[in-house]
């Protein structure tokens, strides 16, 4: 058998890898300049700062009350993940296993909050939440963040549940298990990997969700992204380096989350699931 030839000619290959390298070099520049700046003392028209210090981190910690902000972020994300899994997984089960009148309409309804830009439904939603007194508090932020999260859990869990052989459930029923037992004893253990994957993805989305939190948060219920945005758009009052330090804290937190997520989810596989959802 003849060895397989390269599919694209050589110059094209170089061009492609060159593009990738160019993207990564610039990306490294973007990230690197923030990290360097957050550790630098004074940095004006030079390649590197004049000296190095870690003071900006403690300054950012005190100045922006980061402990409180981080606590709020953790609280909001935990609530959003928990509630969206509780609401989403049973719905995903029914959507995966049953066909009934209005199934397609319901599916479309679950797809819409993901397809629409958050600002478009976020502004009316914030108005309604303010009307009923939820917005400005933690509850409003959680409710707003649930809007894209519940459909997200449903859409990622539906294909996952479809993969599970229905014969297992039927066997359990034959042996006399009631619906509750089928769920708790048979399905729940099988669903754990899928639920973990969905929760981590929802967690990453919620920590990174800017628009909805921004529109509904009050001064006491800002998550890290929103606090970061406020600190940056009020530039001039704050030292730029302490904003950089805060951005680095945010990114390291997200990086840890994403690396954990990648242990549970293969990105290409995840996307294949998204593909089925959109079809």
């Amino acid at each position: 058998m003849r060895p397989r030839r390269s599919i694209v000619a050589r110059p094209a290959a170089w061009l492609v890898w060159g593009l990738v390298a160019f993207f990564f070099v610039n990306l490294a520049g973007v990230i690197g300049s923030v990290v360097v700046s957050s550790f630098g003392t004074r940095w004006f028209d030079t390649w590197l700062p004049e000296g190095w210090t870690a003071d900006w981190y403690s300054a950012a910690w005190d100045e922006f009350d980061l402990l409180h902000v981080l606590l709020v972020t953790v609280e909001v994300s935990a609530l959003v993940v928990g509630i969206s899994v509780l609401i989403g997984v049973p719905a995903a089960y029914v959507l995966a296993r049953r066909s009934f009148l209005g199934r397609r309409v319901l599916y479309l309804l679950f797809l819409l909050p993901i397809l629409m830009p958050p600002i478009t439904y976020g502004i009316p939603l914030a108005t309604v939440l303010y009307k009923y007194g939820f917005a400005g508090h933690l509850s409003g932020v959680v409710l707003a963040n649930l809007v894209p999260s519940v459909p997200f859990v449903i859409l990622t869990m539906t294909p996952f549940i479809e993969q599970i052989d229905p014969a297992i459930e039927r066997a359990a029923r034959m042996c006399g298990a009631r619906t509750r037992h089928v769920f708790l004893r048979i399905l729940a253990p099988l669903l754990v990997p899928g639920i973990l994957a969905a929760s981590i993805l929802v967690l990453v989305r919620t920590v990174g969700m800017f628009e909805l939190t921004f529109l509904t948060a009050g001064p006491d219920s800002q998550t890290l992204v929103v606090a970061l945005y406020y600190s940056m758009s009020a530039a001039g009052i704050r030292a730029q380096q302490s904003v950089d330090a805060m951005a680095v804290i945010y990114t390291s937190m997200m990086l840890v989350l994403v690396v954990v997520a990648l242990r549970f989810v293969n990105p290409t596989q995840l996307v294949a699931r998204v593909k089925e959802d959109v079809d």
Partner: peptide
């Protein structure tokens, strides 16, 4: 994906 819009913005301004 982990950068978020704010770090990207800050990085672009610096870089």
């Amino acid at each position: 994906v982990t950068l978020g819009t704010v770090l990207t913005a800050q990085g672009l301004l610096n870089f």
